[in-house]
Nucleic acid binder design. Structure first.
Lengths: 133, 133
DNA sequence: TATTTTTCTTAAACTAGTTTATTTTTTCTG
DNA sequence: CAGAAAAAATAAACTAGTTTAAGAAAAATA
């Protein structure tokens, strides 16, 4: 399992994207704009595509177009969620759409993905647990 | 000038993207996922591309790839800003990167873009004004 | 220009989320 | 399996952002 994250000016990390088996992950922006870091959360076998080969793909096939279109939609959806929902709602959505991530990732990676502190996610979870009684 | 926005479950609008003269705007997601609305903020002349023609572009040329790549990077950057900055910092960034939007749009469209209430943006502005004395 | 409508500001009480510190639980390592 | 290290929970004091409501300013319209 891999993740892409950024570090903001205050040194805090934010997870942007996770990748599981057989998934593509990458960053299309030029390094100048923002620094994205790629990190293996679990032991992984990774194949990489050189920039030249990526350009060949880009120019000749619609695979890349489909990939980036999908990524775009995913990102857009995430932006909308983060703009319009509370962290609690976003957590529920994550449980609903990607339960396997919650099983597999340590809590602090989830909180970083949701854009809240680990402490606050823990609060959300204990509230959730109380509710289920 | 155009905008694309969503309406969340509680009926609140969030601006996702603005388009000025000679810019492309659109939504790639299928209607099933989320409803995006397109709205002209000022009197505009708009040209549209049919889905079939868009597919032709997509398959044969790299124009579309460049466009979507750029959009993706823009969106990603916005997500990072919203995750890691306060609304005040995001406003300053908007002033720095897109001052023309601030001139041109009513304040409530800006606040909706930043993901805060108009009331809170007004607070930010008055604080800013006090600082400049 | 007077009037109506829309946008913006201000204030006060509230809720969501942060920070820091301490304790408990879980996981890793010898 | 004991001890160390890492992750998670809890609490308390704080800050960022919301909500509601009322008034002021600006823009549109007659």
């Amino acid at each position: 399992m891999l993740r892409i994250y950024v570090i903001d000016t205050s040194g805090k990390e934010f997870n942007i994207l996770f990748a599981r088996e057989n998934q593509w992950i990458g960053d299309l922006s030029t390094p100048a704009v923002t620094s994205f870091y790629l990190d293996a959360i679990e032991k992984s076998i990774v194949y990489s595509v050189s920039n030249e080969n990526l350009n060949l793909l880009t120019n000749n096939f619609s695979t890349f177009v489909r990939y980036i279109k999908k990524s775009y939609i995913f990102l857009q959806r995430r932006l909308v969620s983060i703009l319009s929902n509370t962290a609690e709602q976003n957590y529920e959505e994550l449980v609903r759409l990607h339960p396997e991530l919650i099983q597999r990732l340590p809590q602090y990676h989830i909180s970083s993905y949701l854009g809240v502190t680990p402490v606050f996610l823990s609060k959300i979870l204990s509230k959730r647990a109380r509710k289920k009684d």
